[in-house]
């Protein structure tokens, strides 16, 4: 009986954290979509993240729920709600945000220790950014087929992406992740937990610490993120549309046109009949 109660309580607490992180980070990412980005030369000053929100919450509460909540929030609020859903690319974002936030949350043993919070915040951000950069480079490389052939393109991609990483880490990372997290964690500690009916996290809590298992999970997650992107490229050579058309030529295409046109006509007739039947 008592064990049942215990799991029910932690389940509900996890759901609360999930809902909380999702709403807040979702709202914040909605703004990042709207705040204009501007560039001075190559330096892109953008408020890339409000990543401090899930970072803070993952340090105060269960890291995994906060991480999943943040990734879901971004997916739902800014991608789906604003119709910015980018297909496979979103899976990559989902996983990298989850992993980054999760790592940061697990690194913190004691939320009152500022140094620990700071290191965790910047590590989590860097991890997320680095994974994003690797995937980004791969993405452009595979999308533009004659990538290597275009003069200046590979260098520019490596340079811009590499620069973007450093810039994001030093600019967004410090100003929008590290500092706000350092500001918020001590302020919220001990205040937000009672509102959710929980006990504040203490050093002895089991949720902290980066076990080998956790690291393994993160690595697997990242591999999934890359695979999601590489699936596109692999698919490209497998499907190889252009070759197919070249061989079968115009006849096949014409056949397809006729077949689909027939389908349209048949459906139209069926629909009309269906409506007539419905009326009668």
């Amino acid at each position: 009986m008592s064990t049942v109660q215990k799991t029910a309580a932690t389940q509900s607490q996890k759901l609360m954290i999930f809902v909380l992180t999702m709403s807040l980070y979702g709202l914040a990412t909605l703004f990042t979509e709207l705040i204009p980005k501007f560039q001075v030369g190559l330096v892109e000053f953008s408020v890339e993240y409000f990543l401090f929100i899930p970072l803070t919450l993952s340090m105060l509460f269960d890291p995994l729920s906060a991480a999943l909540g943040a990734a879901t929030g971004e997916l739902v609020f800014s991608e789906i709600m604003l119709g910015q859903f980018g297909g496979l690319g979103e899976l990559e974002k989902f996983l990298t945000v989850t992993i980054g936030v999760y790592i940061a949350g697990r690194l913190v043993r004691d939320p009152k220790n500022r140094a620990m919070v700071g290191v965790a915040a910047i590590t989590g951000t860097a991890a997320q950014l680095l994974m994003g950069t690797i995937v980004d480079i791969a993405k452009v490389q595979f999308a533009v087929e004659d990538f290597e052939a275009v003069a200046g393109l590979p260098e520019s991609v490596f340079a811009t992406e590499g620069f973007a990483f450093l810039n994001d880490l030093l600019f967004s990372g410090i100003f929008f992740c590290l500092l706000p997290t350092l500001y918020l964690v001590p302020k919220l500690y001990g205040k937000i937990e009672p509102l959710l009916g929980m006990a504040p996290r203490v050093a002895a809590s089991t949720t902290s610490g980066l076990s080998p298992k956790a690291i393994l999970t993160c690595v697997i997650g990242f591999v999934c993120a890359i695979v999601a992107e590489l699936a596109a490229t692999a698919g490209m050579s497998l499907i190889d549309w252009e070759a197919e058309w070249a061989e079968s030529g115009t006849a096949l295409a014409a056949g397809m046109v006729v077949a689909t046109a027939l389908a349209v006509i048949i459906l139209l007739v069926m629909k009309k009949n269906g409506e007539r039947n419905a009326v009668c």
Binding site: L24, A28, I53, L184, K187, L188, K191
Partner: peptide, 10 residues
């Protein structure tokens, strides 16, 4: 986001 976090938590 400080007040917002607390209010949303409630």
């Amino acid at each position: 986001f400080y007040p917002l976090m607390l209010n949303t938590a409630k």
